[in-house]
């Protein structure tokens, strides 16, 4: 079983990682993903603090950081959307 995931970034995050469209990250949960991202790219911390949502297989998670990252799932980071 692989805990290595391709993490797609939205446009505003790409400059923080040298312009890459995606990163390859080892993690098993959203929390682990964020921890690893901050370790690799400290510039991400401010964004994560402000709120980053994670789309896992098309399902959008905003808060539940212990959500597991299933093998081969398509993972996107997205801005945390406000509502009216």
């Amino acid at each position: 079983m692989s805990d290595t995931h391709i993490i797609h970034l939205w446009g505003a995050l790409r400059p923080l990682v040298g312009g890459a469209l995606f990163l390859t990250v080892k993690a098993t949960t959203i929390r682990g993903l964020f921890r690893t991202l901050v370790e690799l790219h400290p510039g991400m911390e401010a964004h994560i603090k402000r709120g980053v949502a994670v789309s896992i297989g098309g399902k959008i998670y905003r808060d539940q950081w212990d959500t597991p990252l299933p093998e081969c799932a398509e993972i996107y980071l997205l801005p945390r959307v406000p509502g009216g």
Partner: peptide
């Protein structure tokens, strides 16, 4: 594949 990234369910 949605215009904002993820694939729709």
């Amino acid at each position: 594949k949605s215009s904002y990234g993820p694939v729709y369910g």
